[in-house]
Computed example of a mutant assay.
Amino acid sequence: MLSPQSIPVVRATLPVIGAAIDEIAELFYAKLFADRPELLRDVFNRGNQANGEQRRALAGSIAAFAAMLVNDPDTRPDVMLARIANKHASLGITASQYKLVHRHLFAAIGEVLGEAVTEAVAAAWDEVYWLMANSLIALESRLYRAANVADGEIWRQMTIVEHRSETSDVTSFALVRTDGEPAGDYQPGQYVSVQVELPDGARQIRQYSLSHAPGNPQWRITVKRVRDGVDPDGEVSSWLHANATVGDVLTVSAPFGELVLPPGDEAPLLIASAGIGVTPMIAMLEHLVSTGSSRPVTVIHADRAPSAHALREEQERCVAALPNARLLTWYEEPREFSGQSRTGRVDLSDVDLPKGLIAYLCGPLPFMRDLRANLLLRGVPARDIHYEVFGPDLWLV
Score class of each variant (00 low, 15 high):
Y331T: 04
P364A: 10
L353R: 13
L371A: 12
L361E: 03
S290L: 12
P306E: 07
P306W: 03
L348W: 01
V346M: 13
S290M: 10
H301F: 05
S338I: 08
S294Y: 00
Y360G: 11
T298E: 07
R317F: 02
T291G: 10
S294P: 03
A310E: 03
G363S: 05
A310C: 15
K355D: 14
R295M: 07
C362E: 08
D303H: 00
Q315Y: 03
G292H: 09
S349V: 04
G275Y: 00
P323S: 09
D370V: 08
R335W: 06
E336V: 01
C362R: 09
D347Q: 11
P334V: 03
P354G: 07
A305W: 02
A320Q: 13
G277L: 01
P334R: 05
M368K: 14
L348I: 08
L311M: 15
L357Q: 10
L311K: 05
A320N: 13
L288T: 04
S290A: 14
G275K: 00
T343G: 15
R304G: 11
W330N: 10
I282G: 02
A308T: 15
L365E: 14
H309S: 15
V351M: 07
L285V: 06
A305Q: 09
W330C: 07
T291R: 09
V299E: 05
P306I: 02
I300L: 15
V351G: 13
F337W: 10
R304H: 11
P364Y: 01
R312E: 08
P364K: 03
P296G: 01
V351W: 00
A283T: 08
T298I: 15
V278N: 04
A320S: 15
P306M: 11
